[in-house]
Design a protein around this nucleic acid. Structure first.
Lengths: 208, 208
DNA sequence: GTCTATAATCAGATAGAC
DNA sequence: GTCTATCTGATTATAGAC
């Protein structure tokens, strides 16, 4: 009995991983249960057996991705230096984006198509996170720690820029005549993006 | 005969418009020919009659979108003021993004899924445009008109930020508890984004 | 040229053998 | 628990009537 349950868990994990891969490549609708089954090395009926439906599996994949999205920014307070926090936030996001591009793409496609499956997450968890962070930025501005900027636009700008490298990877690689990102790319892009945004908010980048 | 051809052209335009709408809402795969037919007010066989296949219609929609994408930036030269050009570029892109969100989303989904249908456009037209623009920025930097920044990252940053408002509209509206963008949003966002990016490049925004 | 009816294919989900 | 075979429905594309 113990062994069986272990197998079940392992199998489920393998299926979610395969599903994440395929959904991240083709999107929800264009991914068939069979594609996932082939990648997981299982007959397609097993997929449905473990996750009753394609949509249920997709929801599992989504929540698996969202649970992975915790940031440095989460723990920042008004006493912290906005330059250090924002720099870290940008670099961490960029790293996530370039390290797990398929997760980012699944999320992007979900939002692009109306975010029907994650409406609740957006309107509860993320909204709470977002209003805390905008208030923190307002606090920094009020305390004279940074220039007056619209906090929402600033956060969207950081999200947009960092996710762009995952979501538009195919375009970027063509334009730069590359096959994949290198380690130097991550550094160069991080430096540029962080420099522009920090300086744009009247902040000085930490020298570390 | 003249009348018939006129009708044909009108019908084709109506179909492309309907297709753009539906593809922009659900993406390529999740949009059925029937959805397009219903929106265009035609029987679905007519869609296939005018555009031999779903994919051919999709390609038409894509090229229709791409032909619409000319920017202020296109005509800028080294003698222009980078502050004015970049400010205009940002605001125009933002306006396009918020005014035609579905076009932006079709393009985004296409790139997200590997850009198979527009590989040629990316590697010819867009690559040419891109290398011209990066060289222009390098020229400005060499001429001391702006601070040294990585030109590619700067362009990607502007693309990412401006498109974000179309592509992630559903997320943004939830987070800001709105039903749609207002005219004031366009102004506020344009001001913030332009201010951060220009200041981030060591430029002073034109006062107009 | 325009549309109805239909063929051919492929998807998600189920029933039931092992 | 695991897998094969099958059902049901939807989709693209075509054939052919008007």
């Amino acid at each position: 009995m113990g062994k069986r349950e272990d197998n079940r868990e392992e199998t489920c994990t393998a299926i979610i991983k395969a599903a994440e891969y395929e959904f991240g490549l083709h999107g929800y609708k264009a991914t068939s249960i069979n594609m996932i089954a082939v990648r997981a090395g299982l007959p397609k009926a097993n997929i449905v057996y473990y996750f009753s439906s394609k949509e249920a599996l997709y929801r599992q994949v989504l929540s698996h991705i969202l649970s992975d999205w915790n940031n440095v920014f989460d723990r920042a307070t008004i006493d912290d230096d906005p330059a250090i926090v924002l720099d870290q936030f940008i670099r961490t996001k960029l790293q996530q984006s370039m390290h797990k591009p398929r997760s980012s793409r699944i999320f992007a496609m979900e939002v692009l198509q109306g975010a029907e499956h994650i409406k609740e997450y957006l309107s509860t968890e993320l909204t709470a996170w977002f209003s805390k962070r905008t208030r923190l930025i307002e606090g920094w501005i009020a305390a004279g720690k940074m220039q007056a900027v619209d906090p929402s636009s600033l956060i969207f700008m950081i999200w947009a820029t960092t996710q762009h490298y995952a979501d538009f990877e195919s375009q970027i690689l063509v334009l730069q005549n590359k096959k994949s990102y290198g380690k130097d790319d991550l550094t160069r892009i991080g430096d540029t993006v962080s420099a522009i945004i920090l300086q744009g908010c009247g902040l000085v980048r930490p020298s570390s």
